[in-house]
């Protein structure tokens, strides 16, 4: 359970104080898949980083499973758009890293790494360095890495943002398959509405800067969902329409601000 209790972020430049994120209140239940969507600069990544404990809220608090987040939140797995795999470690050694940090016995690490590599379909690529892997493979390794130490919550900041459109759909399918079996809570930041709808139980639409949550919509499309076909279903299109009407004015506002 993640409880966001009036968490806000302001930035100070000299004497001027800019509000990046107005106080946010939101509760995310265990096992829920929640997406944050909004125009760039709306503070959705800032809020995710607050849950991860990388950024401290200026006011308010984040409570994760009963504990107030202060400093890096080790009960989460964190995945970003940029490659965060350590380039000097092989895929297997990257997946082993969080386990080694927790002083897991070597035999248990080896077994877990093999299991994770198989889960993401890279059983034969454990010995490859990140530089030798494709973009999609690197994402799979990063996913295996954060699943390896079994944190209850996964925080994902546009993890598939750099992938091409087709590969993105494939990765979405794999993420859903893994999530449906693992029972994790996932908080997913994206600016791709189709991605948010396809994956989520609930979608939080952020307003343009200063960010606040404009609406939280429940996506009651049946599961399992097929990312390659779901967009042709009438129910999906109705949800898409409804959310797009919420999102579009914010995109326009943020564009107006950018050109002001």
């Amino acid at each position: 359970m993640i409880e966001i209790k009036g968490a806000a972020k302001t930035f100070r430049t000299g004497a001027r104080v800019t509000a990046a994120l107005e106080p946010i209140d939101l509760a995310i239940a265990d096992g829920e898949f929640v997406s944050f969507i909004g125009p760039s600069g709306c503070g959705k990544s800032t809020l995710l980083n607050m849950i991860a404990g990388i950024i401290a809220p200026s006011s308010g608090a984040i409570v994760h499973d009963g504990r107030t987040v202060a400093g890096a939140n080790t009960a989460t797995g964190y995945m970003t758009q940029q490659d965060s795999l350590l380039p000097w470690r092989t895929a297997a050694a990257n997946i082993a890293l969080p386990l080694a940090l927790r002083r897991t016995p070597p035999a248990a690490i080896d077994a877990r790494v093999a299991q994770m590599l198989a889960l993401v379909g890279l059983a034969n690529f454990g010995g490859h360095f990140p530089a030798e892997l494709s973009g999609g493979m690197k994402k799979r390794v990063a996913l295996a890495q954060i699943l390896a130490y079994d944190p209850p919550t996964l925080l994902m900041d546009e993890p598939f943002g750099a992938l091409d459109a087709q590969l993105k759909l494939i990765m979405q399918g794999e993420l859903m398959r893994i999530w449906e079996n693992a029972g994790k809570t996932i908080v997913f930041v994206t600016h791709d509405l189709a991605e948010a709808i396809t994956l989520s139980d609930r979608v939080a639409v952020f307003s343009s800067r200063p960010g606040r949550i404009k609406a939280v919509e429940t996506i009651d499309l049946p599961r399992p969902r097929d990312p390659l076909r779901i967009q042709f279903e009438p129910a999906y299109r109705a949800v898409h329409q409804r959310l797009w009407d919420l999102l579009a004015p914010e995109i326009e506002a943020s564009r107006a601000e950018a050109f002001a």
Binding site: G53, A72, T74, G77, R102, Q145
Partner: peptide
């Protein structure tokens, strides 16, 4: 950041 979250 990522390794801190992993518990380093």
């Amino acid at each position: 950041q990522v390794t801190a979250i992993m518990g380093a």
